[in-house]
Nucleic acid binder design. Structure first.
Lengths: 217, 217
DNA sequence: TAGATTGTTAATCGATTAACAATC
DNA sequence: TAGATTGTTAATCGATTAACAATC
């Protein structure tokens, strides 16, 4: 019952489960999996696995478990990954270019299964008109036109920190509903737009806290 | 009182606060900040800001607020960022090379303030012996030697998924205590080793859930 | 002093886990 | 049938928020 506002804590775990099922499907040996085993592989308790899935329906059989291929298909549907989703990337600097190349290399034109990187944007005239692995770099000033024409709803932001908020505003005006933000700033967006932050310098700083130190306490 | 096991939820917010203070210090105009204002800028409630900080001491003045430069220095100390922390990167493929270049470009030899990327590792003979912006690529087989000699405690993993677990094992054996993992796998490590996952295909999948669909309900 | 804001305790809220009847 | 595992409710746990005395 997704219309009843399912917690984001639940949603964050669904891709974890899906990955486990993808791996199992690729191996092709296991056809049934229990919440215990699925939880172990995803790093989640078995009761939580069952509770998470139960929000969306009854996918298992008592005494048996979950059918891998069926649950996988259902999770894809729930995550809207049963369709091709076009994705844009804004900011073809060192990080943006690298991410584009990395993803295109890893998944072909797929930024991830069913997530297709199909448009790059920048403001630099030297980059506009070029392409990376066949994906064209458009002028960011024309973002509205391309986003509409290509039906793009998701974008990654890899521009410098001081431009990220402005880019986010223009993206949301163009109709973007999901933003993966690599810039080290907090983005303010309308409430119908989801933002995920992928700022790994914050993660490094967090890890530093846990380092053993020789300082006297 | 960090010896009383402070929740990771708290620790994750400290770098957020620190960034706000860094920005304020760079502007150099604001010298005092209230929990309200700090919370607004970090995207956190004011009561939570005060509670988080109170775990580590009394840094504010009633009726006044927090002194920016003082709180900043204290947060750096708490996060162990009052010293230079050497960092290694394992896996100089398209993503690893890109991350190295990006970080070295952005921070000089600093992967982030006081986090210094000083050693790269790979198994490819064509890469070993080369360097990126002056940072040498060592053979991963010699990881123990270099990690010990350079006093490295943190590492980023950017190897393919099927090699990540093995790399993690060898890194922990070499004495690494913090791992930022970019590979799309769950790493099993000893309990005294912290892992942060920076897998943005999971984030993209999460965002896809929130996209408006034209499917009938 | 009067106004403001901290540090901290109590109340609330939400998420996870335990337990078990239902049932394959 | 007997054994196993789901779906779901109740209990627990933990994190956030509200409130306010202390005090700058």
């Amino acid at each position: 019952m997704r219309w009843n506002k399912i917690s984001d804590a639940v949603i964050r775990r669904l891709p974890l489960y899906l990955r486990v099922l993808d791996d199992l499907a690729a191996e092709g040996e296991i056809e049934l999996i229990s919440s215990q085993e699925l939880g172990d592989r995803a790093g989640v308790g078995p009761a939580l696995v069952r509770k998470d899935l139960a929000w969306f329906g009854e996918f298992g059989k008592q005494g048996v478990g979950y059918e891998v291929s069926f649950l996988r298909k259902e999770l894809k549907r729930i995550l809207n990954l049963d369709q091709e989703i076009p994705v844009a990337l804004v900011g073809i600097g060192s990080l943006g270019g690298a991410l584009a190349r990395y993803h295109l290399k890893r998944y072909g034109e797929h930024a991830s299964p069913n997530l297709n990187l199909i448009a790059l944007f920048d403001t630099d005239p030297n980059k506009i008109g070029s392409s990376i692995n066949g994906i064209p770099v458009f002028p960011f000033s024309e973002v509205n036109k391309h986003v509409e024409a290509l039906g793009i709803k998701m974008a990654m932001i890899t521009v410098p920190a001081d431009q990220a908020q402005e880019v986010a505003v223009l993206l949301t005006k163009a109709g973007i509903k999901g933003i993966l933000n690599f810039a080290p700033v907090k983005l303010n967006v309308p409430s119908d737009v989801q933002v995920s932050n992928a700022d790994f310098s914050l993660e490094l700083q967090r890890l530093a806290y846990y380092l053993p130190t020789t300082k006297q306490n």
